[in-house]
Design a protein around this nucleic acid. Structure first.
Lengths: 206, 206
DNA sequence: CGGTGAACATACCATGGGTATGGAGAGATC
DNA sequence: GATCTCTCCATACCCATGGTATGTTCACCG
């Protein structure tokens, strides 16, 4: 029988993480105080320091929280049905939409490399969304859909392009339009990278 | 006759900026205290607050400092001799090399969007290196060298890809090799975007 | 039903950004 | 050349905030 106390404890912890996600999304890491975060979670700093070793650790928990949501969505798509090409296009679309989420954009994309340090961020992303971009590209190459480009750097280029473009989308007056434009440009790039000399002759997109 | 006093004042100011660039490059914006910066410039916080309104303002001065160096180099290339295509390739190479400078990378690329806020960073970059990427792409399109893609978003994608790739280069065990790989991938992308149906038939690069 | 430890709250410290004030000395004015 | 002024900078202080040390409560265990 699971203890009632443990339920409370976990609830407190997740309340702190949710509070951190919300406040950091609004005011940024540096602009958010621990007292604020604790107050919004209706606890004190004592509780916060009981669950987390410090501000950085709480940020990383917030990072994991927003990142895992996006990862789950992308993972379903990238390892789901359809051809590698179809999955890549669907994944691309999903990633752009994910980047429109203010929390994911600010916490996972923008502040994380600075707050956690680029090395730690890279490691984390390797296991998350960047890992999917990378493996997706690898699948396309393995399937002979696109030319054999250097996977590591190309994936990095793609990920960087997408995440920076995402900010452009989100802060544009007409996000839908800009989002569609960006998706279009990327797709056209991919199409041009596509092998036209292979057995597949008809592109599946216009 | 220029006052001796003004010379001293300006010297103090630039010493503060140089000190800020150096320390922020090493330990980041949040990890660098104003006392440290002042101490390294052999003045006190009083002098610092006489020349700058606060920590943010000093950071922006440091940003301008590193950014203007890169901008000058790129500007000479992008508005120099040669065809738009040649200038684009040379500019690409120069930008990647610039991103290898730890100061430019950390201050201008990574921390500036977080510290200054993305809006201010975007405005600043618009007048600097990003502006050159954008105008370079525009020139290529105007000259009929590449397909008419949406300039704004494509430039943003390119800039994002390059700056994130720069970090990959700099933190790689073999920066030269990774740098060459990235340049190669980008060039191949550009070549594929190149109009082959136009009057120009022979690509100028291998 | 007393003991124990997890799950917090409270009180405090230290660092560092920002401010208020003082002073020194170069240049202007007479 | 005496004084006056104003820039340039130093010193001393304030206070917000991350972090710590200690106290307190209360569920579970024996």
């Amino acid at each position: 029988m699971r203890s009632r106390r443990l339920d409370y404890s976990e609830s407190t912890r997740s309340a702190l993480v949710d509070s951190a996600v919300e406040l950091i999304t609004k005011r940024g890491y540096a602009g958010t105080s621990l007292d604020e975060i604790a107050k919004r979670a209706r606890v004190t700093k004592g509780a916060l320091y009981h669950h987390f070793s410090g501000k950085q650790a709480l940020f990383e928990a917030a990072f994991d929280s927003v990142e895992s949501l996006v990862y789950d969505r992308l993972d379903k798509i990238m390892n789901g049905d359809g051809t590698p090409w179809e999955r890549a296009l669907a994944g691309l679309n999903a990633f752009i939409r994910a980047c429109l989420d203010p929390a994911y954009q600010r916490i996972a994309i923008h502040e994380a490399p600075v707050v956690m340090g680029w090395e730690r961020w890279r490691e984390a992303e390797e296991r998350c969304s960047f890992g999917l971009v990378r493996s997706g590209l690898q699948s396309l190459i393995d399937a002979g859909e696109v030319e054999p480009v250097p996977v590591e750097v190309t994936a990095r280029l793609l990920f960087g392009a997408l995440s920076s473009a995402a900010t452009e989308i989100a802060s544009s007056p007409d996000p839908k339009k800009v989002g569609a434009e960006i998706e279009d440009v990327i797709v056209r790039m991919l199409v041009r990278l596509r092998r036209t000399d292979g057995e597949e002759a008809t592109p599946s997109i216009g």
